[in-house]
Design a protein around this nucleic acid. Structure first.
Ligand SMILES: [Mn+2]
Ligand SMILES: [Mn+2]
Ligand SMILES: [Zn+2]
Ligand SMILES: [Zn+2]
Lengths: 135, 135
DNA sequence: TATAATTATGCAACAATGTTGCAATAAATA
DNA sequence: TATTTATTGCAACATTGTTGCATAATTATA
């Protein structure tokens, strides 16, 4: 599992491995407080810097939704290092009942075109009721 | 312009009119700090509560993007009061050069379908270079 | 228009979230 | 193993957001 870090050029440290294990222990996207709960005792600042470094190196991506919802999820293997954009062929589905955020694969991203606007990146967020929460 | 408030069942007060005028003085979506700058002197807590009430009553909507970007923009006339969802037939375009966030009308929302997931609301965020920033 | 009911405001106090600088420490490289 | 380079942990600070409460203003009612 160290290789997950090495492959993205992230130095391997005990704390980073701890954080990585937290991600692997969840199915879906997780919030800062979920990470903190799992970690037990830890340094808050180091955690912020760890998440930032994971993002910058394409190991995780950030998901934000209206209503101060912020979560993190693991990226794909192929996901870009450093300044390259994360390019995910999936949408983010937020369930209103259980509050889980799912990364759902979609066959093809819809193709927008706006005259005179250059499109580099499309993010799609969907709200509704998830599979498990259907009555 | 008072009617913009009355139509959405928002009590008219001098401060709320001030905030409304700030929105009308900008073309695109605006940030909290942009509002604060325009207001001059004001009570921070009242502003938070004003924005919350504007949102709850369908006068403005909140736009969030990865990287701690949070902006506000006016809704359409038709936009839902209270607990009804804001339903906007537009996307949010964030320009990497000038950092403006545009609400851009699109002819039709793409139609997603995920087996066993009930979709209630779709938000689309696009990053790129805007019209005005093209070389 | 005067009165009552309802909601908004302003202030204090607090909570949550995020950033920077720096010395000590640990990881990777040679 | 020695050197280079990046990470950690701590303090201090900045930004963002919330709650309670007394006072003031707005709206509804008579
Ligand atoms: Mn995702
Ligand atoms: Mn909009
Ligand atoms: Zn659910
Ligand atoms: Zn631009």
């Amino acid at each position: 599992m160290e290789n997950l870090l090495k492959n993205k050029n992230i130095r391997v440290t005990p704390f980073r491995m701890d954080v990585l294990r937290v991600f692997n222990s969840f199915e879906n996207a997780i919030s800062l407080s979920q990470i903190e709960e799992k970690l037990g005792s830890f340094d808050r600042i180091t955690l912020y810097r760890t998440l930032k470094s994971f993002q910058e190196n394409g190991l995780i991506h950030e998901i934000v939704m209206p209503g101060d919802i912020k979560k993190y999820a693991m990226c794909e293997e192929k996901c870009g290092h450093k300044e390259h954009n994360h390019q995910h062929e999936h949408i983010h589905f937020h369930c209103k009942k259980c509050s889980e955020v799912y990364c759902l694969d979609i066959p093809a991203l819809p193709n927008f075109h706006f005259t005179n606007y250059t499109i580099e990146n499309v993010e799609i967020q969907v709200k509704g009721i998830c599979e498990k929460c259907q009555k």
